[in-house]
Design a binder for these strands. Structure first.
Lengths: 192, 192, 192, 192
DNA sequence: GATGAATGAGTCTTCATTCAT
DNA sequence: GATGAATGAAGACTCATTCAT
């Protein structure tokens, strides 16, 4: 059991190192040797846990994406009104983007560049299924604009990614007021 | 002059090749030799026009960004109303994103990953100064929400980047109706 | 005793795996881990039985060579005539080459390439001493050509190795008639 | 032209180094870096002339084999008697084996191990077509035993490879008398 | 200005071998 | 004895950059 735990720890350390380094330098500019060093293992050890570099990033991506989805819908309950439900989900996403910005920056990079295998990325926004369902209901109830989910996503969810990046790259600090303002904009953009 | 033209042609061919290859494979997965081959020059020739690979991408970035800004504000006239001015600019940006998606995909990749020198990227959204000025006026006139430009940008402009990527990566086709719908969302999200 | 038998079994399994893998891929293209897997033991276990990879192959070579010599001279009896004795030995060698081609292919590969330690290989054809003695007698009796044993070997014994390889690599199938024909050629080439 | 010559020189140096090093250590025990060093070029330069290590060895094999065939049949003339023709070819092969033993050792190693691509090796003994034709004629004339070419080759030609190896590995020196004796054995083994 | 050849530095990956259990 | 995990060392191969022409 101690041994198994040690293995899991190493795998986690590798995933963590991958996220941090890929965030700072990008996939191709991150050598396996650096990942190994940061995780305190030998480069050869990586290959006990992952098939190759691509596999390492793919698995990291899937793992982070799962963390994201789990977090986002943890408190969600389908029985609320559309607006309440949306606010709930939106705020969780915002919280994730702000508090776990290492994760969200990584996800964002994977979504915007060709470093992830097609199959892994093609999954697209389907992992947000409960949100899509909510929108569906909202459209039927006449609360949400009857437009493509892609557009709804582009205007209500994706801006958070931009704000997260802006916060990381420019001299812009997101505070509580900003989040409220952002939510209003999000809701305004999709509400009927 | 024929000679000068030939030089300009080569430089342009190199920039064009850089955009296409970086779009498809990313910065680090794009060897200089491939860029050279696609531009029909020798690898050594690149170094007559650019200091090194980083410089090549930086200059490409600046060039594309200039094209973008030039296009976006070409028809803009400060004397219009805020809403009209915004619609004008927004639609130009949309047009650029859709028709010159090679360019916008490249810009987006540069903005979201660490492939560009800090100085070039740090500039943020300042290159859209006329738009920022317009928003300033809008806030004073009480037409635009009195919130940070970053948020305004995140909700009214950045979604177009997402839609452009969605169009490239998923099975989503942007048509004229979509653009109108998107504009409404954009305006709704920032109007007071 | 059960324990001892288990040990011997493991050692044999390792030798068997070594032969098969080296035959198919060559010495250096055969990782210890593969040998271990095929023998159903851990890589570390190999080092309980052999000092290192070189030692494993050397011992395998010696073991196979012993099998070869034992088989070849098992039915031999020095009291026969030279021709009868030669036929007896030759046919045993042929039988070994054909029926135990895994073994002979391995021996051949060791003899023709630098994968075996010099000392092991330098021994040359001395392991066939009874045959050399028979030839000596044959030369004295005027039945065998009075030429170097190396030449006698090259023309009467070594061709079998070639035929064995030809059978494995090309579309040539050795049948009983071929063997008889081959024996005639062998005898013709060394008889006075 | 000076440049072209330099290129050819480099390629030749690489082929020469490959032969020598593979002869002494085998394919897999010969690092590209060693080949490069012996040929006085950078490891990277090898890849200007050959696709990869396998390609380097394949091309080396084909080149050497061509040298072999060219040499063997250079003086051959189909109009002679079968025996004279055979003696002519045989002695050229012997000469090649003795004088160019680097080449023949290399060929032998390639023929006996799985280091060469199947296609390259599968060609088998077909490159000796004129000799096969001569044998055909000999069989029709009743001068040569009516047996498989593989057996004829095994007994008349292949022994030279063994003698060449014996000379290299053991304390056996081939002199003129040996060659004559060997030829007699060769002829005896295939003549009717 | 233009180039093809050349390369040093660096990358991913493998593998014989060891060691704690 | 037996093992699976771990790794240092090494190897094939790539690529940004230079330089003689």
């Amino acid at each position: 059991m101690a041994k198994l735990q040690k293995s899991i720890d190493k795998r986690n350390a590798l995933i963590k190192a991958t996220i941090e380094l890929v965030n700072n330098s990008g996939f191709h500019a991150t050598p396996m040797s650096k990942i190994a060093k940061m995780a305190n293992v030998s480069p050869a050890t990586i290959y006990l846990y992952f098939e190759n570099k691509q596999d390492l990033v793919n698995q990291t991506y899937l793992e982070v994406k799962t963390k994201y989805t789990d977090f986002v819908f943890k408190t969600y309950d389908e029985s609320t009104s559309v607006k309440t439900g949306f606010e709930l989900i939106w705020k969780r996403i915002a919280e994730f983007n702000i508090n776990e910005c290492e994760y969200s920056f990584f996800l964002n990079q994977c979504n915007n560049t060709p470093i992830i295998d097609e199959p892994s990325r093609k999954e697209g926004i389907r992992h947000l299924q409960p949100l899509l369902d909510l929108w569906e209901r909202g459209k039927k109830e006449g609360v949400i604009k009857p437009i493509s989910d892609y557009i709804l996503y582009a205007y209500s969810i994706n801006p958070l990614s931009y704000l997260m990046i802006a916060q990381k790259q420019y001299e812009f600090q997101l505070n509580k007021t900003h989040v409220e303002e952002a939510f209003l904009s999000a809701w305004d953009s999709i509400k009927r």
